[in-house]
Design a protein around this nucleic acid. Structure first.
Length: 434
DNA sequence: TCTGGGGTCCTAGGACCC
DNA sequence: TCTGGGGTCCTAGGACCC
């Protein structure tokens, strides 16, 4: 039986959340701002209609905001997280399995009988119970479900916010209408590269030679090609894997020049990041610190240094990390610049409980050296350099697709296209945690 | 004329997503 | 004057090892 997926996506999520608590704003233009109130990161339909672009600096839109009385909110992530959890809980009731993809999106594995009527009912239920409007796209793969969702959103009035690609009668016509940069995972750069191959629409992408796509866009591109052709090869992650890193950074309201001031900001970031670490039960084995001047000031001297350090022991201790962060900052700080931003990034995360019994890497290396020495001795005694009796090897490496490709001059098979286990990676990354 | 080759670990940078 | 913050994955290349 063919797999059926849905992508459920909340409409203008942050704005929709704000509106729940201010019903008088229904039908009025609303925007939500980024952390420092710097950029517009969510717009209601009415705000979009006024031509306010996504990600625009607030100050550039001040005129429109004033003129049309656009209601402006600072972001409130506690609220959004809470609303998200409510929506997800409802979705779980209808799905066989659920993968929460981001704060406002989830993939659903659908039961066989789930069609457009059921999707409409689900949509109505979410709206009735949470006040959040959603759109639902259905198809056989994640990429296609994304595309279906886009269609549902774009033609909301006509589709009722629900679109089933498998039930679409003029699929080819639809694919011809969608340009490549509208595909999930194809950004500006890749679209440009595709255009260079004469591939401009989803239809052309689907019909393209997969080898050509592979050559030009790599394994990521080939995965997209399969997905677009109905072959699912992105992983299903019902349980989100542990984070690989945490970061804390902020822009300053006004540029800072003194080391002590930057230090203070950085200390705050280290505290936030290490707190996060502890909350997840993780410890970091590497810390990176960075500084940035104002990149928008073309006339000013720019300086964007960074420094990092691998820690001896994984830690989540604020004070330990703080000490290291300060030293790193001193390494990179230079007088005479106007700094606009600083931040810290903690990576190489391991589970706190695993730290105790963690693999003794040095021990393993030592053991390997010992074995190698034995192998050498045997070879010296029994063979010669050119024809060793025993050869050293390491598991799998010889057969890693990368190496294999170099040797054979061929592509590796589609499903083992990367030296990492495939299919593993998610398209183009993405912030996936709520 | 050839100049070892297989392997690990790490970092930086590119691309994309929400 | 103001110009977000937090993620993921892939690839290339250097250092090092035997």
């Amino acid at each position: 039986m063919k797999q059926r997926l849905a992508l459920v996506d909340c409409n203008n999520f942050f704005c929709s959340c704000e509106r729940i608590f201010a019903p008088s704003l229904s039908g009025k233009p609303v925007v939500v701002l980024s952390n420092n109130d710097g950029c517009i990161i969510s717009r209601s339909e009415e705000a979009k209609a006024l031509g306010i672009p996504m990600g625009a600096p607030r100050h550039e839109q001040e005129g429109v905001i004033q003129k049309h009385g656009v209601k402006v909110f600072s972001s409130n992530y506690t609220l959004y997280g809470d609303m998200s959890a409510r929506v997800m809980a409802i979705l779980r009731e209808s799905a066989l399995e659920t993968e929460v993809y981001s704060i406002d999106e989830a993939f659903l594995k659908l039961p066989g009988e789930f069609g457009e009527a059921e999707a409409r009912a689900l949509r109505a239920k979410v709206l009735r119970w949470t006040g959040i409007p959603v759109c639902i796209g259905m198809a056989g793969t994640k990429m296609l479900a994304k595309l279906a969702n886009r269609e549902a959103k774009k033609r909301r009035v006509e589709t009722g916010g629900v679109f089933d690609l498998d039930a679409c009668e003029d699929l080819e016509e639809l694919m011809e209408r969608v340009s490549c940069d509208g595909l999930w995972g194809v950004g500006k750069r890749l679209a440009l590269r595709l255009a260079g191959l004469g591939i401009r629409t989803a239809a052309e992408f689907r019909w393209a030679d997969s080898r050509q796509i592979r050559k030009s866009l790599g394994v990521v591109g080939e995965r997209m090609w399969w997905e677009m052709n109905g072959v699912s090869c992105l992983p299903w992650e019902e349980i989100p894997p542990d984070r690989k890193g945490v970061m804390a950074s902020r822009s300053f309201g006004t540029p800072l020049e003194k080391l002590e001031e930057v230090e203070e900001a950085l200390a705050h970031h280290v505290a936030r990041a290490s707190e996060k670490l502890r909350r997840f039960g993780l410890r970091a084995s590497r810390i990176d610190v960075f500084l940035q001047t104002n990149r928008f000031r073309a006339g000013e001297a720019q300086y964007c240094p960074a420094a990092g350090l691998n820690l001896d022991e994984p830690t989540a201790s604020t004070s330990e990390l703080m000490g290291q962060a300060r030293e790193l900052l001193h390494e990179i700080y230079r007088k005479g610049y106007r700094y606009q931003k600083t931040g810290v990034s903690l990576t190489g995360l391991v589970r706190a409980e695993a730290v105790q019994g963690c693999l003794d890497l040095d021990g393993v290396r030592k053991a390997k050296r010992e074995v190698d020495a034995i192998v050498d001795r045997i070879n010296q005694r029994l063979g010669d350099r050119k024809n060793p009796v025993i050869t050293r090897g390491s598991m799998g490496s010889k057969h890693s697709p990368q190496r294999w490709r170099m040797k054979s001059g061929q592509r590796s098979p589609a499903y083992t296209t990367s030296w990492r286990d495939l299919p593993v990676a998610v398209l183009g990354g993405g912030s996936r945690r709520v």
